[in-house]
């Protein structure tokens, strides 16, 4: 059983996945942030690889990516930073990023290196289903990595089922059709999550986009297995002089 499966075996509700940007706020803070998240009670970590043109992300995460890039973060640097991270971080880690940098690095080499350092899964929002099925899915599988597809309230039932069948680890339910960090009415979101629940999907469902505090985390968890916090946590680290303390404070607030 891999690390992601283990998490959902032990805990079927209120699973907390927290997003952080590699190389942000400082180039060398990647590991420190991950350790602080684990100590604070995050169940999974989604580690963002910065990109110049992150279409699915809102301004907060894009800004953190710009800072990380100007700090000198690259995929090669990230794998160096992650070389020994499994000595201290035991929670599942999912790399999130965009196709272009991964293709430049070499898709297969990327999967091989990610698996070698102990990464558990990938989220590449602009890798389409067709290309996944015809080309990239087999490579991802070869290295034993999970691949997590996104679904939105606009995704048809038929397509949700298809994407669920292709996903391993969990399914990422985008709370509303929006970029990350957007405020939307959560009432409509609950109806949508209930709809997903009724489909009896193969994978656990984590809800992302617009989850920022205890209240939104609880609402999202009510009809799913848990939620993903991104922009709100990135913002909390913006001017942090004590990453450990600020991370603890932020997560404690969500889980209180």
């Amino acid at each position: 059983m891999n690390r992601i499966e283990q998490v959902f075996k032990n805990k079927s509700n209120r699973v907390l996945n927290v997003y952080c940007t590699a190389g942000y706020p400082k180039l060398d803070s990647t590991l420190q942030v991950m350790q602080a998240l684990q100590e604070s009670g995050a169940d999974l970590i989604e580690l963002g690889m910065p990109y110049s043109d992150p279409l699915a992300d809102g301004p907060v995460i894009q800004h953190s990516g710009s800072i990380a890039l100007s700090n000198g973060m690259t995929i090669a640097t990230l794998f160096k930073q992650l070389k020994d991270f499994r000595k201290t971080v035991t929670v599942p880690v999912i790399l999130m990023g965009y196709m272009n940098p991964v293709m430049q690095y070499g898709f297969e080499k990327f999967c091989a290196d990610a698996a070698a350092v102990g990464v558990d899964g990938l989220i590449l929002p602009d890798l389409p289903q067709y290309e996944f099925e015809t080309e990239y899915g087999a490579i991802i599988k070869k290295y034993g990595l999970d691949f997590i597809f996104l679904v939105t309230p606009e995704t048809s039932e038929k397509r949700v089922k298809e994407l669920d069948a292709l996903s391993t680890g969990f399914l990422y339910a985008v709370s509303s059709s929006s970029t990350t960090g957007n405020d939307k009415d959560f009432g409509a979101v609950e109806t949508y999550l209930q709809r997903l629940k009724n489909l009896q999907l193969k994978n656990p469902v984590l809800v992302g986009f617009g989850i920022k505090d205890k209240q939104t985390f609880e609402s999202a968890s009510k009809h799913s297995n848990g939620a993903i916090i991104g922009s709100a946590f990135v913002k909390a680290l913006e001017n942090s002089s004590d990453i450990k303390a600020d991370t603890k404070k932020f997560i404690a607030n969500v889980l209180s």
């Binding site: 110049s52 890039l69 272009n100 430049q104």
Partner: peptide
């Protein structure tokens, strides 16, 4: 070769795949 604005094409980019 790279992906920019939703299609695979030829893209001016750094070695690290930043446009």
């Amino acid at each position: 070769a790279g992906v920019l604005h939703g299609s695979k094409s030829i893209v001016m980019q750094t070695e690290d795949g930043q446009v």
